[in-house]
Amino acid sequence: MRNLLNFILKHHFVLLFIVFEIISFFFLIQFNNYQKSTFINSSNTIGSKAYRTSNSVGQYFALRNENILLNKALKELYSENTILYKNHKVSTSMILDSVMLQQYTLIPGLVINNSANKQNNYMTLNIGKNQGVDKGMAVISPAGIVGVIKDVSNNFSSVISLLNQNLRISALVKKNGYYGTLKWEGRSYEYASLYDLPGHININIGDTIITSGYSAIFPKGILIGTVSEIDNYKGGDFFKIRVKLTTNFKNISNIMVVKNLLKDEQLQLELKAEND
């Protein structure tokens, strides 16, 4: 016992160092497991207040580009509406509302903290539990997909950005419907990689990649990007495809959170099927 105490006294500096490193790594690993809610992160009050202040200044500089983007989205929606209106006049049968079941609702919000230069990037949004946001919801922008909600507080939420190596998204090639897994490689914020596409399918540079809707998080058909490089492993059965993302993660500001109203129903059914 006395020897042990002597040992601790003699090497207290090294031992304290090791203890601190263990604590740090414990935090680090606890944090990486993003299902567990973390206590100290930027969606807590102090951090997000500070960011909100600095962001409200910084936002003015991006207003021009944002307006162009919003205008584009508005134009698209507007033209869709007029087309619908014309068809409606021509067709004789009416579509009743009660026939359709609404599956998704959208909650608009703003990005108040963002990064694109780390290996695992996160964002903070200015909407939270009070606005109806919850863990595991999808986040999209007018240009394409953005990420998945990781954590919510009353008025803020943090998002696992698509630029995060922990996030995998089921994606498909729009023209023929074959699906694969989309993952960010941790290099350029403009590109991600699509794995597991069968090697025999016909695919060209410039083809559109969209979400598959298999995961109960993203609706089907949200834009992800376009094929920019095709890499067929020599003799392999699968393609590896480099996808140029349509979302620009460097100047993203206006986003929408997608709430899947039928998510619980789908997950419960899938769980039941797995257990049987």
Partner: peptide, 9 residues
């Protein structure tokens, strides 16, 4: 870390 969401790093 508190400000960058990278607790422990």
């Amino acid at each position: 870390d508190m400000f960058t969401d990278t607790l422990g790093m």
